[in-house]
Design a protein around this nucleic acid. Sequence first.
DNA 1: TTGTTTATGCAACAGAGTTGCAAATGTAAG
DNA 2: CTTACATTTGCAACTCTGTTGCATAAACAA
Lengths: 135, 135
Amino acid sequence: MNAAQEIKDKGLKVTTARVKVLDILQPDGLALSHMELEPMLGKIDRITLYRILNDFEEVGLVHKVIDIDGVTRFALCKHNCTTHHHNDNHLHFNCTACHKMYCMDNLPVTAVNLPKGFKATGQSTIIYGLCSGCN
Amino acid sequence: MNAAQEIKDKGLKVTTARVKVLDILQPDGLALSHMELEPMLGKIDRITLYRILNDFEEVGLVHKVIDIDGVTRFALCKHNCTTHHHNDNHLHFNCTACHKMYCMDNLPVTAVNLPKGFKATGQSTIIYGLCSGCN
DNA sequence: TTGTTTATGCAACAGAGTTGCAAATGTAAG
DNA sequence: CTTACATTTGCAACTCTGTTGCATAAACAA
Ligand SMILES: [Mn+2]
Ligand SMILES: [Mn+2]
Ligand SMILES: [Zn+2]
Ligand SMILES: [Zn+2]
């Protein structure tokens, strides 16, 4: 599906900035940071980018991940996420050489047996090491 | 063991600020943020706290974890970590109500089968939900 | 095309973290 | 117990990340 249609389907106005952001996130499926996105967007204001990404996250177009260096990254949702409800509880791989963060959508997430009293609602796992490009 | 001795054993000078920081991290075993530590330390400068925690991490006295909100936290090492080599690859539990972060030292860490080409050197898992105090 | 709603850009701000440097403190030796 | 050296501390200044208010520009439905 094209970016404009996806944005409209989520109830957001179709603007050039929003289409551009979604177009950039589409191809590789990597989780990108603000620092990486800004130069790819040309003359779009950085505050606008913050707002676009936050809006996209709210409506379930992208999800946010914090990498092993504490950098916030955004990647496309691929699991029919909706407003305020994300279904993409998947693993992430963070390369310690090139710093790319990959969404590992096809790997199983193992549930953990917690001590009495603790109740999990989700979990976030980042595996780090060398990616296929750097290994 | 007392804080001053642990600091000396790691090859660091024993200062009042360092002893105070280690004394605060000792009892509960929680991972604390700068924001939580600063008011507990009295008149110690926030830059000094940054340097103390970084030094402690380098020599294996504490480890750093980034919580689900992106806040950096520090907790005591309990696995004989040494300078530039941490052995405490354990799970963390982050309460979504009280925001406490617990080191789950006794839970097993499940290894993940990665796609060809990817090589893991470690992994960081944060389980979130309600802790025993908030449940 | 017009009018209303929403998004954008800019300025200003707050929080987290780093670096350089002078003054204070810790430590080991005399 | 003093002294001398090495290290740590506090402060100022700075960068980077993220947020908010407000006037203008763009989207879109009528
Ligand atoms: Mn992902
Ligand atoms: Mn821990
Ligand atoms: Zn790589
Ligand atoms: Zn709690």
